[in-house]
Design a protein around this nucleic acid. Structure first.
Lengths: 223, 223
DNA sequence: AATGATTTGTAACATTTGTTACAATTATTA
DNA sequence: TAATAATTGTAACAAATGTTACAAATCATT
Protein backbone atom coordinates (compact mmCIF):
# COMPACT_ATOMS: atom_id res chain seq x y z
CA UNK A 1 0.00 0.00 0.00
CA UNK A 2 1.11 3.47 -0.87
CA UNK A 3 1.10 5.38 2.38
CA UNK A 4 1.71 8.75 0.78
CA UNK A 5 -2.00 9.13 0.06
CA UNK A 6 -2.65 9.26 3.79
CA UNK A 7 -1.34 12.73 4.40
CA UNK A 8 -3.61 14.11 1.73
CA UNK A 9 -6.55 13.12 3.90
CA UNK A 10 -8.09 15.67 6.26
CA UNK A 11 -7.76 13.06 8.98
CA UNK A 12 -4.00 13.46 8.93
CA UNK A 13 -3.88 17.16 8.32
CA UNK A 14 -0.93 18.87 9.92
CA UNK A 15 0.97 15.61 10.18
CA UNK A 16 4.08 14.46 8.40
CA UNK A 17 4.11 11.16 6.58
CA UNK A 18 6.11 9.31 9.25
CA UNK A 19 3.66 10.33 11.95
CA UNK A 20 0.66 9.22 9.94
CA UNK A 21 2.24 5.92 8.96
CA UNK A 22 3.25 5.23 12.53
CA UNK A 23 -0.26 5.95 13.77
CA UNK A 24 -1.89 3.70 11.18
CA UNK A 25 0.56 0.86 11.57
CA UNK A 26 0.02 0.72 15.30
CA UNK A 27 -3.68 0.08 14.88
CA UNK A 28 -5.38 -3.01 13.45
CA UNK A 29 -6.56 -2.30 9.96
CA UNK A 30 -7.20 -4.12 6.75
CA UNK A 31 -7.22 -3.33 3.09
CA UNK A 32 -10.26 -4.26 1.07
CA UNK A 33 -10.17 -4.35 -2.70
CA UNK A 34 -13.13 -3.83 -5.01
CA UNK A 35 -13.44 -4.21 -8.77
CA UNK A 36 -14.82 -1.32 -10.73
CA UNK A 37 -18.60 -1.33 -10.57
CA UNK A 38 -18.95 -3.53 -7.51
CA UNK A 39 -21.17 -2.61 -4.59
CA UNK A 40 -19.12 -1.64 -1.54
CA UNK A 41 -22.01 -1.16 0.81
CA UNK A 42 -25.70 -0.83 0.65
CA UNK A 43 -27.96 1.90 1.85
CA UNK A 44 -29.33 0.97 5.26
CA UNK A 45 -26.46 -1.34 6.17
CA UNK A 46 -24.88 -0.47 9.50
CA UNK A 47 -21.61 1.42 9.37
CA UNK A 48 -19.24 -0.54 11.57
CA UNK A 49 -15.91 0.80 10.53
CA UNK A 50 -13.99 3.76 9.34
CA UNK A 51 -13.26 3.52 5.64
CA UNK A 52 -10.95 5.59 3.57
CA UNK A 53 -10.35 5.39 -0.16
CA UNK A 54 -6.64 4.89 -0.75
CA UNK A 55 -6.84 4.02 -4.40
CA UNK A 56 -9.49 4.56 -7.03
CA UNK A 57 -12.79 6.41 -6.83
CA UNK A 58 -16.08 5.47 -5.24
CA UNK A 59 -19.46 7.08 -5.59
CA UNK A 60 -22.45 7.40 -3.33
CA UNK A 61 -25.82 6.96 -4.90
CA UNK A 62 -29.24 7.20 -3.42
CA UNK A 63 -31.90 4.70 -4.35
CA UNK A 64 -35.42 5.87 -3.73
CA UNK A 65 -38.41 3.65 -3.11
CA UNK A 66 -39.22 3.47 -6.78
CA UNK A 67 -35.74 2.18 -7.59
CA UNK A 68 -34.54 5.35 -9.25
CA UNK A 69 -30.84 5.97 -8.72
CA UNK A 70 -29.48 9.42 -8.05
CA UNK A 71 -25.76 9.95 -7.90
CA UNK A 72 -24.86 11.94 -4.83
CA UNK A 73 -21.13 12.38 -4.88
CA UNK A 74 -17.77 11.06 -5.99
CA UNK A 75 -15.18 10.27 -3.37
CA UNK A 76 -11.64 10.09 -4.70
CA UNK A 77 -8.54 8.71 -2.98
CA UNK A 78 -7.92 10.00 0.57
CA UNK A 79 -11.64 10.64 1.07
CA UNK A 80 -13.46 9.00 3.96
CA UNK A 81 -16.72 7.11 3.57
CA UNK A 82 -19.67 8.14 5.72
CA UNK A 83 -17.47 9.47 8.51
CA UNK A 84 -20.45 11.11 10.17
CA UNK A 85 -22.24 7.75 10.24
CA UNK A 86 -19.73 5.65 12.14
CA UNK A 87 -21.00 6.82 15.50
CA UNK A 88 -24.45 7.98 16.51
CA UNK A 89 -27.62 5.98 16.82
CA UNK A 90 -28.74 5.98 13.20
CA UNK A 91 -25.35 4.74 12.05
CA UNK A 92 -26.40 3.29 8.73
CA UNK A 93 -25.23 4.10 5.26
CA UNK A 94 -27.51 6.78 3.84
CA UNK A 95 -26.56 5.76 0.31
CA UNK A 96 -25.27 2.89 -1.74
CA UNK A 97 -21.53 3.03 -2.20
CA UNK A 98 -20.19 1.72 -5.49
CA UNK A 99 -16.64 1.45 -6.78
CA UNK A 100 -16.26 3.61 -9.85
CA UNK A 101 -12.83 2.28 -10.68
CA UNK A 102 -10.77 -0.52 -9.15
CA UNK A 103 -10.56 0.56 -5.56
CA UNK A 104 -8.67 -0.07 -2.35
CA UNK A 105 -10.12 0.88 1.00
CA UNK A 106 -8.35 1.23 4.31
CA UNK A 107 -10.72 -0.20 6.89
CA UNK A 108 -10.50 0.25 10.65
CA UNK A 109 -13.15 -1.34 12.82
CA UNK A 110 -15.17 1.01 15.00
CA UNK A 111 -13.71 -0.13 18.33
CA UNK A 112 -10.17 0.07 17.01
CA UNK A 113 -10.94 3.40 15.43
CA UNK A 114 -11.92 4.85 18.79
CA UNK A 115 -8.54 3.82 20.21
CA UNK A 116 -6.89 5.12 17.09
CA UNK A 117 -8.50 8.52 17.60
CA UNK A 118 -7.29 8.60 21.18
CA UNK A 119 -3.77 7.65 20.21
CA UNK A 120 -3.01 10.96 18.57
CA UNK A 121 -4.26 14.43 19.44
CA UNK A 122 -4.11 15.70 15.91
CA UNK A 123 -6.07 12.77 14.54
CA UNK A 124 -8.77 13.22 17.15
CA UNK A 125 -8.99 16.94 16.50
CA UNK A 126 -9.06 16.34 12.76
CA UNK A 127 -11.83 13.78 13.01
CA UNK A 128 -13.88 16.08 15.21
CA UNK A 129 -13.32 18.76 12.58
CA UNK A 130 -14.44 16.46 9.79
CA UNK A 131 -17.73 15.45 11.30
CA UNK A 132 -18.38 18.90 12.71
CA UNK A 133 -17.81 20.39 9.28
CA UNK A 134 -20.35 17.97 7.96
CA UNK A 135 -22.97 19.24 10.42
CA UNK A 136 -22.06 22.79 9.66
CA UNK A 137 -22.40 22.24 5.94
CA UNK A 138 -25.78 20.61 6.40
CA UNK A 139 -27.00 23.35 8.75
CA UNK A 140 -26.07 25.91 6.18
CA UNK A 141 -27.89 24.03 3.48
CA UNK A 142 -31.01 23.69 5.57
CA UNK A 143 -31.00 27.39 6.20
CA UNK A 144 -31.49 27.91 2.48
CA UNK A 145 -34.01 25.17 2.00
CA UNK A 146 -36.09 26.65 4.80
CA UNK A 147 -36.72 29.86 2.93
CA UNK A 148 -40.06 29.39 1.28
CA UNK A 149 -39.55 31.49 -1.81
CA UNK A 150 -36.70 31.59 -4.28
CA UNK A 151 -36.47 35.34 -3.70
CA UNK A 152 -35.86 34.62 -0.04
CA UNK A 153 -33.17 32.06 -0.70
CA UNK A 154 -31.44 34.28 -3.20
CA UNK A 155 -31.59 37.33 -0.95
CA UNK A 156 -30.08 35.30 1.89
CA UNK A 157 -27.42 33.97 -0.43
CA UNK A 158 -26.46 37.39 -1.74
CA UNK A 159 -26.36 39.04 1.67
CA UNK A 160 -24.38 36.20 3.13
CA UNK A 161 -21.90 36.14 0.28
CA UNK A 162 -21.46 39.90 0.44
CA UNK A 163 -20.93 39.93 4.18
CA UNK A 164 -21.53 43.07 6.23
CA UNK A 165 -19.31 45.42 4.21
CA UNK A 166 -19.30 44.71 0.52
CA UNK A 167 -22.07 45.74 -1.80
CA UNK A 168 -20.72 43.89 -4.79
CA UNK A 169 -20.17 40.17 -5.12
CA UNK A 170 -18.97 37.77 -7.74
CA UNK A 171 -21.23 34.82 -8.31
CA UNK A 172 -19.07 31.72 -8.21
CA UNK A 173 -21.88 29.32 -9.00
CA UNK A 174 -23.65 29.11 -12.33
CA UNK A 175 -27.41 29.46 -12.31
CA UNK A 176 -27.58 25.73 -12.75
CA UNK A 177 -25.50 25.11 -9.66
CA UNK A 178 -27.47 27.64 -7.66
CA UNK A 179 -30.69 26.01 -8.79
CA UNK A 180 -29.45 22.64 -7.66
CA UNK A 181 -28.19 24.05 -4.37
CA UNK A 182 -31.56 25.62 -3.69
CA UNK A 183 -33.47 22.65 -5.05
CA UNK A 184 -35.39 24.69 -7.66
CA UNK A 185 -35.60 24.92 -11.44
CA UNK A 186 -32.99 26.87 -13.32
CA UNK A 187 -35.27 29.26 -15.23
CA UNK A 188 -36.86 30.17 -11.92
CA UNK A 189 -33.50 31.45 -10.71
CA UNK A 190 -33.13 33.54 -13.84
CA UNK A 191 -36.62 34.90 -13.44
CA UNK A 192 -36.09 35.94 -9.85
CA UNK A 193 -32.79 37.62 -10.68
CA UNK A 194 -34.41 39.63 -13.42
CA UNK A 195 -37.30 40.56 -11.10
CA UNK A 196 -34.86 41.81 -8.49
CA UNK A 197 -33.17 43.88 -11.19
CA UNK A 198 -36.47 45.24 -12.43
CA UNK A 199 -37.33 46.27 -8.88
CA UNK A 200 -34.04 48.15 -8.57
CA UNK A 201 -32.83 45.96 -5.73
CA UNK A 202 -29.75 44.63 -7.48
CA UNK A 203 -28.00 45.04 -10.77
CA UNK A 204 -25.89 42.43 -12.49
CA UNK A 205 -23.22 42.44 -15.10
CA UNK A 206 -21.99 39.00 -16.06
CA UNK A 207 -20.84 37.29 -12.92
CA UNK A 208 -20.84 40.51 -10.92
CA UNK A 209 -23.78 41.53 -8.83
CA UNK A 210 -24.20 44.82 -7.04
CA UNK A 211 -26.61 45.42 -4.22
CA UNK A 212 -28.54 48.64 -4.84
CA UNK A 213 -31.13 48.50 -2.08
CA UNK A 214 -29.84 46.48 0.81
CA UNK A 215 -32.86 47.27 2.93
CA UNK A 216 -35.34 45.82 0.47
CA UNK A 217 -33.05 42.86 -0.07
CA UNK A 218 -32.94 42.21 3.66
CA UNK A 219 -36.74 42.43 3.75
CA UNK A 220 -36.91 39.55 1.31
CA UNK A 221 -35.20 37.21 3.74
CA UNK A 222 -38.52 37.18 5.54
CA UNK A 223 -39.90 34.98 2.78
CA UNK B 1 -23.29 23.37 41.73
CA UNK B 2 -25.61 20.44 41.66
CA UNK B 3 -23.67 17.66 39.98
CA UNK B 4 -26.61 15.34 39.69
CA UNK B 5 -27.76 17.07 36.52
CA UNK B 6 -24.62 15.84 34.79
CA UNK B 7 -25.63 12.24 34.41
CA UNK B 8 -28.83 13.26 32.70
CA UNK B 9 -26.72 14.61 29.86
CA UNK B 10 -26.03 12.42 26.84
CA UNK B 11 -22.36 13.30 27.30
CA UNK B 12 -22.27 11.22 30.47
CA UNK B 13 -24.54 8.45 29.32
CA UNK B 14 -23.69 5.08 30.77
CA UNK B 15 -21.74 6.66 33.61
CA UNK B 16 -22.48 6.75 37.29
CA UNK B 17 -22.48 10.04 39.12
CA UNK B 18 -19.10 9.51 40.78
CA UNK B 19 -17.43 8.85 37.45
CA UNK B 20 -18.95 11.95 35.84
CA UNK B 21 -18.08 14.16 38.80
CA UNK B 22 -14.55 12.86 38.88
CA UNK B 23 -14.12 13.50 35.16
CA UNK B 24 -15.45 17.04 35.38
CA UNK B 25 -13.54 17.97 38.48
CA UNK B 26 -10.25 16.92 36.95
CA UNK B 27 -10.65 19.35 34.08
CA UNK B 28 -10.56 23.16 34.20
CA UNK B 29 -14.07 24.48 33.94
CA UNK B 30 -16.05 27.44 35.03
CA UNK B 31 -19.64 28.24 35.80
CA UNK B 32 -21.23 31.20 34.10
CA UNK B 33 -24.47 32.68 35.34
CA UNK B 34 -27.01 34.54 33.26
CA UNK B 35 -30.12 36.43 34.25
CA UNK B 36 -33.36 35.56 32.51
CA UNK B 37 -33.55 37.32 29.17
CA UNK B 38 -29.86 38.04 28.79
CA UNK B 39 -27.96 37.26 25.63
CA UNK B 40 -25.57 34.36 26.13
CA UNK B 41 -24.00 34.44 22.73
CA UNK B 42 -24.64 36.01 19.42
CA UNK B 43 -25.09 34.45 16.03
CA UNK B 44 -21.79 34.55 14.17
CA UNK B 45 -19.64 34.65 17.28
CA UNK B 46 -16.98 31.95 17.36
CA UNK B 47 -17.72 28.94 19.54
CA UNK B 48 -14.63 28.52 21.70
CA UNK B 49 -15.88 26.28 24.40
CA UNK B 50 -18.16 23.47 25.30
CA UNK B 51 -21.22 24.73 27.15
CA UNK B 52 -23.82 22.77 29.00
CA UNK B 53 -26.92 24.07 30.70
CA UNK B 54 -26.85 22.92 34.32
CA UNK B 55 -29.65 25.11 35.56
CA UNK B 56 -32.46 26.95 33.82
CA UNK B 57 -33.46 26.97 30.18
CA UNK B 58 -31.92 28.69 27.19
CA UNK B 59 -33.31 29.16 23.71
CA UNK B 60 -31.75 29.44 20.30
CA UNK B 61 -33.21 32.03 17.99
CA UNK B 62 -32.35 32.89 14.46
CA UNK B 63 -32.16 36.48 13.40
CA UNK B 64 -32.49 37.02 9.69
CA UNK B 65 -31.12 39.97 7.74
CA UNK B 66 -34.29 41.92 8.21
CA UNK B 67 -34.10 41.57 11.98
CA UNK B 68 -36.97 39.14 12.32
CA UNK B 69 -36.49 36.68 15.14
CA UNK B 70 -37.45 33.04 14.82
CA UNK B 71 -37.24 30.80 17.81
CA UNK B 72 -35.44 27.62 16.91
CA UNK B 73 -35.36 25.50 20.03
CA UNK B 74 -35.37 25.36 23.78
CA UNK B 75 -32.48 23.74 25.58
CA UNK B 76 -33.25 22.73 29.15
CA UNK B 77 -30.81 21.68 31.85
CA UNK B 78 -28.26 19.02 30.83
CA UNK B 79 -28.47 20.07 27.19
CA UNK B 80 -25.33 21.12 25.36
CA UNK B 81 -25.06 24.32 23.36
CA UNK B 82 -23.94 24.10 19.73
CA UNK B 83 -21.93 20.95 20.33
CA UNK B 84 -21.53 20.41 16.61
CA UNK B 85 -20.03 23.89 16.29
CA UNK B 86 -17.14 23.64 18.73
CA UNK B 87 -14.87 22.04 16.17
CA UNK B 88 -14.83 22.39 12.41
CA UNK B 89 -13.90 25.36 10.30
CA UNK B 90 -17.18 27.26 10.42
CA UNK B 91 -17.29 27.06 14.19
CA UNK B 92 -19.60 29.97 14.80
CA UNK B 93 -22.91 30.11 16.57
CA UNK B 94 -25.64 29.62 13.98
CA UNK B 95 -28.16 31.33 16.25
CA UNK B 96 -28.45 33.78 19.10
CA UNK B 97 -28.59 32.06 22.43
CA UNK B 98 -30.73 33.71 25.09
CA UNK B 99 -31.39 32.72 28.69
CA UNK B 100 -35.08 32.01 29.10
CA UNK B 101 -34.85 31.75 32.88
CA UNK B 102 -31.99 32.39 35.28
CA UNK B 103 -29.35 30.07 33.99
CA UNK B 104 -26.08 28.45 34.91
CA UNK B 105 -23.73 27.09 32.28
CA UNK B 106 -20.85 24.71 32.72
CA UNK B 107 -18.12 25.98 30.41
CA UNK B 108 -15.03 24.08 29.31
CA UNK B 109 -12.60 25.78 26.94
CA UNK B 110 -12.01 24.03 23.64
CA UNK B 111 -8.42 22.98 24.36
CA UNK B 112 -9.35 21.64 27.77
CA UNK B 113 -12.39 19.97 26.30
CA UNK B 114 -10.24 18.00 23.89
CA UNK B 115 -8.21 16.67 26.81
CA UNK B 116 -11.41 16.04 28.68
CA UNK B 117 -12.73 13.93 25.82
CA UNK B 118 -9.54 11.92 25.75
CA UNK B 119 -9.62 11.39 29.50
CA UNK B 120 -12.56 9.02 29.39
CA UNK B 121 -13.56 6.54 26.71
CA UNK B 122 -17.23 6.82 27.42
CA UNK B 123 -17.22 10.58 27.23
CA UNK B 124 -15.39 10.52 23.93
CA UNK B 125 -17.75 7.93 22.49
CA UNK B 126 -20.73 9.88 23.78
CA UNK B 127 -19.55 13.12 22.27
CA UNK B 128 -18.91 11.44 18.93
CA UNK B 129 -22.42 10.07 19.18
CA UNK B 130 -23.87 13.48 19.93
CA UNK B 131 -22.36 15.25 16.98
CA UNK B 132 -22.85 12.30 14.67
CA UNK B 133 -26.49 12.18 15.62
CA UNK B 134 -26.72 15.80 14.73
CA UNK B 135 -25.40 15.10 11.22
CA UNK B 136 -27.69 12.16 10.88
CA UNK B 137 -30.70 14.18 11.91
CA UNK B 138 -29.83 16.93 9.45
CA UNK B 139 -29.20 14.44 6.63
CA UNK B 140 -32.59 12.95 7.25
CA UNK B 141 -34.22 16.33 7.20
CA UNK B 142 -32.52 17.32 3.98
CA UNK B 143 -33.73 14.14 2.37
CA UNK B 144 -37.28 15.37 2.85
CA UNK B 145 -36.64 18.94 1.86
CA UNK B 146 -35.08 17.71 -1.38
CA UNK B 147 -38.32 16.21 -2.57
CA UNK B 148 -39.84 18.80 -4.80
CA UNK B 149 -43.51 18.08 -4.23
CA UNK B 150 -45.45 17.55 -1.06
CA UNK B 151 -46.73 14.28 -2.45
CA UNK B 152 -43.12 13.13 -2.80
CA UNK B 153 -42.22 14.13 0.74
CA UNK B 154 -45.29 12.50 2.17
CA UNK B 155 -44.79 9.31 0.17
CA UNK B 156 -41.21 9.10 1.39
CA UNK B 157 -42.34 9.75 4.93
CA UNK B 158 -45.05 7.09 4.85
CA UNK B 159 -42.85 4.44 3.25
CA UNK B 160 -40.03 5.15 5.64
CA UNK B 161 -42.25 5.11 8.69
CA UNK B 162 -43.88 1.88 7.58
CA UNK B 163 -40.60 0.15 6.88
CA UNK B 164 -40.35 -2.81 4.55
CA UNK B 165 -43.03 -4.97 6.20
CA UNK B 166 -45.90 -2.99 7.61
CA UNK B 167 -48.67 -1.60 5.48
CA UNK B 168 -50.28 0.36 8.28
CA UNK B 169 -48.74 3.15 10.30
CA UNK B 170 -49.76 5.44 13.06
CA UNK B 171 -49.07 9.10 12.42
CA UNK B 172 -47.28 10.45 15.45
CA UNK B 173 -47.10 14.01 14.18
CA UNK B 174 -50.07 16.28 13.72
CA UNK B 175 -50.57 17.81 10.31
CA UNK B 176 -49.19 21.01 11.73
CA UNK B 177 -45.99 19.33 12.83
CA UNK B 178 -45.67 17.51 9.53
CA UNK B 179 -46.16 20.77 7.70
CA UNK B 180 -43.44 22.41 9.75
CA UNK B 181 -41.12 19.44 9.29
CA UNK B 182 -41.58 19.56 5.52
CA UNK B 183 -41.54 23.34 5.43
CA UNK B 184 -44.96 23.65 3.79
CA UNK B 185 -48.40 25.01 4.66
CA UNK B 186 -50.73 22.93 6.78
CA UNK B 187 -53.76 22.86 4.44
CA UNK B 188 -51.46 21.64 1.69
CA UNK B 189 -50.70 18.56 3.76
CA UNK B 190 -54.38 17.91 4.24
CA UNK B 191 -55.05 18.36 0.55
CA UNK B 192 -52.34 15.94 -0.49
CA UNK B 193 -53.55 13.34 1.99
CA UNK B 194 -57.07 13.56 0.65
CA UNK B 195 -55.76 13.37 -2.93
CA UNK B 196 -53.86 10.21 -2.09
CA UNK B 197 -57.03 8.79 -0.60
CA UNK B 198 -59.09 9.77 -3.62
CA UNK B 199 -56.55 8.03 -5.86
CA UNK B 200 -56.87 4.86 -3.81
CA UNK B 201 -53.23 4.93 -2.77
CA UNK B 202 -53.83 5.15 0.96
CA UNK B 203 -56.74 5.22 3.32
CA UNK B 204 -56.79 6.92 6.69
CA UNK B 205 -58.82 6.63 9.82
CA UNK B 206 -57.90 9.10 12.50
CA UNK B 207 -54.25 8.71 13.21
CA UNK B 208 -54.04 5.42 11.35
CA UNK B 209 -52.97 5.23 7.76
CA UNK B 210 -53.02 2.14 5.57
CA UNK B 211 -51.06 1.77 2.37
CA UNK B 212 -53.34 0.39 -0.36
CA UNK B 213 -51.11 0.70 -3.40
CA UNK B 214 -47.48 0.57 -2.39
CA UNK B 215 -46.29 0.60 -5.97
CA UNK B 216 -47.99 3.88 -6.81
CA UNK B 217 -46.83 5.32 -3.52
CA UNK B 218 -43.23 4.37 -4.31
CA UNK B 219 -43.62 5.99 -7.72
CA UNK B 220 -44.38 9.27 -6.01
CA UNK B 221 -40.98 9.37 -4.35
CA UNK B 222 -39.70 10.31 -7.78
CA UNK B 223 -41.18 13.74 -7.29
C1' DA C 1 -11.07 35.11 -35.23
C1' DA C 2 -14.05 31.08 -35.87
C1' DT C 3 -16.31 27.30 -33.91
C1' DG C 4 -18.84 24.80 -30.74
C1' DA C 5 -20.30 24.23 -26.04
C1' DT C 6 -22.13 26.25 -22.07
C1' DT C 7 -24.68 29.60 -19.81
C1' DT C 8 -28.16 32.99 -19.57
C1' DG C 9 -32.56 35.55 -20.62
C1' DT C 10 -37.16 35.15 -21.70
C1' DA C 11 -41.85 33.71 -22.73
C1' DA C 12 -46.25 31.02 -22.51
C1' DC C 13 -48.52 27.90 -20.10
C1' DA C 14 -49.42 24.08 -16.64
C1' DT C 15 -48.97 22.69 -12.09
C1' DT C 16 -48.27 23.14 -7.41
C1' DT C 17 -48.56 25.46 -3.33
C1' DG C 18 -49.95 29.19 -0.28
C1' DT C 19 -53.60 31.93 1.89
C1' DT C 20 -57.68 32.60 4.08
C1' DA C 21 -61.69 31.24 5.94
C1' DC C 22 -64.87 28.29 7.99
C1' DA C 23 -67.16 24.01 9.29
C1' DA C 24 -66.58 19.37 11.13
C1' DT C 25 -64.30 16.42 13.98
C1' DT C 26 -61.54 14.95 17.69
C1' DA C 27 -59.02 15.70 22.13
C1' DT C 28 -58.68 17.84 26.54
C1' DT C 29 -60.13 19.79 30.68
C1' DA C 30 -63.24 21.56 34.04
C1' DT D 1 -71.00 15.46 30.64
C1' DA D 2 -70.37 19.99 29.00
C1' DA D 3 -67.38 23.29 27.56
C1' DT D 4 -63.23 24.44 25.38
C1' DA D 5 -59.35 23.88 22.72
C1' DA D 6 -56.88 21.62 19.15
C1' DT D 7 -56.93 19.29 14.94
C1' DT D 8 -58.61 18.15 10.52
C1' DG D 9 -61.21 18.62 6.02
C1' DT D 10 -62.43 21.54 2.46
C1' DA D 11 -63.06 25.29 -0.80
C1' DA D 12 -62.01 29.42 -3.67
C1' DC D 13 -58.68 32.12 -5.15
C1' DA D 14 -53.89 34.17 -5.45
C1' DA D 15 -49.14 33.52 -5.91
C1' DA D 16 -45.10 30.99 -6.88
C1' DT D 17 -42.76 27.70 -9.33
C1' DG D 18 -42.06 24.19 -12.86
C1' DT D 19 -41.81 22.94 -17.79
C1' DT D 20 -40.56 23.50 -22.27
C1' DA D 21 -38.65 25.80 -25.81
C1' DC D 22 -35.75 28.87 -28.10
C1' DA D 23 -32.73 32.84 -28.92
C1' DA D 24 -28.97 35.59 -27.20
C1' DA D 25 -24.81 35.95 -24.87
C1' DT D 26 -20.70 34.20 -23.01
C1' DC D 27 -16.89 31.08 -22.57
C1' DA D 28 -13.42 27.80 -24.10
C1' DT D 29 -10.71 25.80 -27.68
C1' DT D 30 -8.61 25.55 -31.79
Amino acid sequence: MDYSVLIKSPLFRGMILEEAVSAVSSTPYRIRRFKAGSLISQSGEPVNSFMMVIEGVVKGEMVDFSGRIIKIEDIPASGALAAAFIFGSRNRFPVNVVAVSDTQLLVIEKADFLKFLKSNDKILANFLDIISNRSQFLSEKIKFLNFKTIRGKLAQYILQTAGPDKSEIRLTMTQNELAEYFGVARPSIARVISELEKDGIICTKGKYLRILDIKKLAELTKE
